[in-house]
């Protein structure tokens, strides 16, 4: 089957999912699918810097928080227009990425991991100390966000909006990694020294990638707040950041669509494990360790290996 047809079918299935859920009497799944789409956006944005840029960020959940608080703060002041929330999130997320990226990218490798984690933690504590916006307890949003005539508190509407953003970011991402910019980013991941000797300003390319990635993840944060009608510092906890990295690795790093697969698989896995036992984190932790030790290229790599063997 040609790839384009495959993608078209997948897209059609995604768009029609709410109807199928209705027919099956399982409306709950629309909410779950929205969650998957939202985390897929965040994971996809992380894959841009992680998979293509070779930058291991362990603080990507900070952008989820930025997006969520953009919604929360505006809403608490009576502004419910989603485009305003989104624009604020894009600007704030981009700015945060720019400032922290300027510092974090002065270092390389392992320091980048630690610094991104630290800056995310900084934002976490900032949110905790914002008593006016709920502090530690978080902030419940009483008014639904609106997109023109659409009410984003409607499950299906929000689902379609999330899918639209996901498709947009996937297309943009694909375009970007195939562009000159993407080629330079990938070259630098593989051989930084050679790229400098060719005359590329690697740091500037990485910084731009980091900013774009942060902006996309901030949108995911907005959608998360639209979905839960609640924002809290927990959205940017280090566990969240870790989960995003896991999603990217699970689905296959450096593929973009792998991040979507990884988000779906991890969320489903969590759901299934949580159904089995209250102590599902124990199992998940063990799975992750095993994955790091043996299945290094994620499901994508596993599938590729199986295909190769046949």
């Amino acid at each position: 089957m040609p790839r384009a047809a495959l993608w078209a079918i997948l897209l059609a299935m995604a768009v029609l999912l709410p109807f199928a859920a209705d027919l099956a009497g399982q409306g709950y799944y629309v909410g779950f699918a929205t969650r998957v789409a939202i985390f897929a956006i965040a994971a996809l944005s992380l894959d841009l810097i992680l998979g293509y840029g070779g930058l291991v960020s362990l603080g990507h959940a900070a952008f989820l928080g930025i997006g969520a608080y953009s919604v929360g703060i505006w809403t608490s002041h009576g502004v419910t227009a989603a485009p305003v929330h989104w624009a604020t999130a894009l600007a704030a997320g981009g700015l945060f990425a720019l400032v922290t990226g300027l510092i974090a990218l002065r270092t390389a490798g392992v320091a980048f991991i630690m610094i991104t984690l630290a800056f995310a933690q900084m934002l976490f504590f900032l949110a905790v100390s914002l008593k006016a916006y709920g502090g530690d307890d978080g902030l419940t949003l009483w008014d639904a966000a609106r997109l023109g005539p659409l009410d984003l508190s409607d499950d299906r509407t929000l689902y379609w909006v999330a899918i639209a953003w996901l498709v947009l970011f996937l297309l943009l991402g694909r375009h970007l990694v195939a562009s000159r910019f993407g080629l330079v980013l990938q070259g630098a991941r593989s051989n930084e020294r050679r790229m400098r000797a060719l005359g590329f300003d690697i740091r500037r390319h990485r910084l731009l990638a980091y900013v774009l990635s942060g902006m996309a993840a901030s949108i995911a944060g907005c959608l998360l707040a639209h979905m839960t009608d609640f924002v809290s510092p927990a959205y940017m906890s280090w566990q969240r950041s870790g989960e995003l990295v896991v999603m990217v690795l699970l689905g296959g790093i450096g593929t973009l669509h792998g991040a979507i697969l990884g988000a779906a698989v991890l969320l489903i896995l969590e759901e299934v494990l949580a159904g089995l036992t209250q102590h599902w984190m124990l199992i998940l932790g063990a799975i992750l360790v095993a994955m790091a030790l043996v299945a290094r290229r994620g499901l994508h790599g596993l599938l590729a290996a199986l295909r190769g063997r046949r």
């Binding site: 291991v56 362990l58 991991i113 566990q239 870790g242 990295v245 896991v246 690795l249 984190m281 124990l282 998940l284 932790g285 063990a286 799975i287 992750l288 360790v289 095993a290 994955m291 790091a292 030790l293």
Partner: peptide, 10 residues
């Protein structure tokens, strides 16, 4: 990162 993150959860 993946392995030691898993250990933390565990």
């Amino acid at each position: 990162v993946l392995a030691t993150f898993g250990l933390i959860l565990f």
